[in-house]
Amino acid sequence: MNAPPRAAVVHAVLDTEPTGSVCCSLVSKTMSILLDQKGVAATLERLSGEVRAALPPDAPAAIVGIRSRGEVLAQRMQAALQRRGCKNLAHGSLDITLYRDDLAEIGPAAQVRRTEIEFDVQDCFIVLVDDVLFTGRSARAAIDALVDLGRPRAIRLAVMVDRGGRELPIQADFVGVRTPDPKRHVTVKLVETDGEDCVEVV
């Protein structure tokens, strides 16, 4: 028997009815794979090309990933840019936990990790990298975290997926793919953090 196509996986969902009685029903929910492994690689390659073209020829530049998946994407983009001949490109990782506007809601689950920016942010052209752009609140936090380190020459934003649903006036400069319905959840999976490369829409 062939394995079912991955685009139509059937999930068992535990449904709670308003009366309080619990019934178990099989609800067919479509989870589509937006990008498979090859798609992720091709998209990242294209994004890297666009970023490459935008880098200033005469100023220090850096790729900065937002922890945790943006950090992995930034590392891959860094490697791709080096293959394209970008020398002296700095690299960093940003933890935005302390800058989030929903710290009170997260409570004890907030985990602060290290921000690792070893280069001088002052006058640097910085490309921020994240996996999904949704409300724009993470990007806002990341911009605030960066400018507390110095005054960059410019900050650009590169994302794998733009999900729509913005709550702040923030847009990405480099977008891998766009999804049409902000209500549908997007998950970017990467080998380094999740064991495989793909983008899922639920």
């Binding site: 800058y99 290290r114 921000t115 400018v147 380190l149």
Partner: peptide
């Protein structure tokens, strides 16, 4: 581990985080 993340705040341009 959390203190590790706070160590660098003292060496930055703006020595403050908004937490």
């Amino acid at each position: 581990d959390t203190a590790e993340a706070f160590k660098d705040v003292s060496t930055r341009s703006v020595k403050k985080v908004p937490a």
